[in-house]
């Protein structure tokens, strides 16, 4: 497969995976969050996660940062559309960032 076709197919596949994730990804916490919930006493090691369980991130003296698209969303009012836009933007930004940095650093073809 030619490079241009491979790149186009790869980016489209990545976008499709991202869009599918908006609708199909599990809402359960990841491994680190689940462990934090055990430490908080809100979950057992092998038990289900209670629907209202939330990881406590209110630690004093720690750095705090508000990202522009928190949790891969554009705010509640934008709903699933905002999540799709956020994930597609993430795929494209990652692709372009690696492309730009690699082009700057990689050896030119002689």
């Amino acid at each position: 497969m030619e490079t241009k076709t491979f790149v186009a197919a790869g980016v489209v596949l990545a976008i499709l995976i991202g869009v599918a994730a908006v609708f199909l990804a599990s809402p359960d916490p990841d491994g680190l969050e689940s462990t934090a919930l055990i430490v908080q006493g809100d979950k057992t090691l092998t038990g289900d996660t209670p629907p209202d369980a939330e990881v406590n991130e209110d630690a004093a003296g720690r750095f705090s940062y508000e990202s522009p698209l928190p949790d891969y969303t554009m705010g509640e009012e934008m709903g699933k559309t905002g999540e799709i836009v956020a994930l597609v933007a993430g795929v494209l930004v990652t692709f372009l960032a690696i492309l730009a940095i690699s082009r700057l650093v990689a050896r030119p073809v002689k």
Partner: peptide, 19 residues
């Protein structure tokens, strides 16, 4: 370079897909 960029974009997308 484009192949590495595609791999990175794919890893970003799959990381968003929690199973």
């Amino acid at each position: 370079v484009p192949l590495v960029a595609v791999l990175a974009a794919g890893i970003f997308a799959i990381q968003a897909f929690n199973l």
